[in-house]
Simulated assay, not measured.
Amino acid sequence: MSEWKAKRFWKTVNVVPSGTGYGIRLDDRPVRTPAKSELIVPSEALAQAIALEWDDQGEIVNPLSMPMTRSANAAIDKVTAQHAEVADLVAAYGDADLLCYRADGPASLVKRQAETWDPLLDWAADRFGARLLPVSGVMHSPQNPKALMVLTQNVREMDAFTLTAFHDLVGLSGSLVIGFAALYNYADPVVLWGWSRVDETWQEEQWGVDEEARELAEHKLGEFEHAKRFHDLAIK
């Protein structure tokens, strides 16, 4: 038996004001999330990006070609309903932030980590008043609870759409600080992604490139860039 596939039924796609946000109409039908809520987003720019994804569909609907729609669905169906749990889950990365776990050798890697990651920790300390401290080795070393609470509160204050993007920025990079740096435009997303891969880049320089690993990293970079763009469109 062949797998059922959704077919395009609409001719026109339009963005319409709806309450305090914007919805998308397929002819006269509102786009709805998988949980059947009307898909209402906070900005016209994001609504237009989602509308373009629907307008670009061919005869068969391909959800994989609709990343903005999928992220909006997640914000409405999942993050809105579990905001506190998602916020605390993401904020927990601060207690084991990638930027705080440093190699104890060789010297070239230690130097590169310090030169790349120390400025990010300094920026976070200045921006939020929360200093995370680096340690040598991979054993967990708890961070200052007061610093963690400050960072956690900043995450808890995010709206559902920002938190959806932030969840991916942090999860993909392994760093709460890099996630914040992406949101606040500390550096270009591609640059930030490269900084999250200091260890991997150093290993490639020593032993050569693993093509499968490189392909996976490129895929994750695309997801990281998407999360940043989703956030930026949502706040326009």
Rank of each mutant, 00 (worst) to 15 (best):
K146E: 08
T33P: 14
A217D: 06
D168R: 14
V90A: 08
V61E: 11
L121R: 13
V15Q: 07
V135E: 09
P34N: 13
D232V: 03
Q48W: 05
T164D: 05
D95P: 01
M139A: 15
T164N: 13
N144H: 07
I40M: 05
A81L: 06
I50D: 10
D159P: 00
S71V: 04
Y93N: 08
W10C: 04
D27V: 02
T20L: 03
D188G: 02
A6Q: 15
Q57D: 11
E205M: 12
D159H: 07
P134L: 04
D122E: 09
R127Q: 14
S173G: 02
D168Y: 15
Q153K: 14
K11F: 04
R229E: 06
R197A: 01
R214V: 02
E223R: 15
R112G: 07
V177W: 02
F180T: 10
L233N: 03
N14L: 09
H219W: 04
V135N: 15
E215Y: 08
A130L: 13
T33D: 10
R197K: 10
V110K: 15
Q48T: 11
I76K: 13
S141C: 02
V110E: 12
V15M: 05
V198W: 12
A81D: 13
R197Q: 05
Q57A: 10
T33I: 05
D97A: 03
I60A: 09
S43Q: 07
F128T: 07
D159F: 00
D27P: 00
E225F: 00
V190Y: 09
V170Y: 01
H167S: 12
H226W: 06
A96T: 06
A217G: 10
P34I: 00
V61S: 12
R131A: 14
G137V: 03
A103I: 02
S37D: 08
D159M: 01
E3T: 06
E223S: 14
E225I: 07
Q206K: 15
L133N: 05
Q206Y: 08
Q203T: 00
A124D: 10
A124S: 12
W207N: 05
E53D: 09
V110F: 05
T20H: 04
V16C: 05
Y184A: 03
P63E: 11
S196P: 00
L120R: 14
A35I: 02
N73I: 00
G208I: 01
T164A: 13
M1N: 11
A74Q: 13
Q153I: 00
Q153M: 06
V61W: 03
F161M: 04
A47E: 12
D27E: 09
W195C: 10
F224N: 03
A72G: 06
W54D: 04
W202D: 05
V177S: 10
Q113K: 11
A165G: 15
M158A: 02
G21H: 04
P134R: 04
G129F: 11
R102G: 02
S108F: 10
A147P: 06
N144D: 12
E53V: 05
E38M: 07
S37W: 11
W4Q: 15
F166V: 01
E204N: 12
W123G: 00
R70L: 09
A213Y: 12
P145K: 06
E211G: 04
L192H: 04
H226Y: 01
S2H: 08
H140R: 11
D126K: 13
A217M: 09
D27M: 02
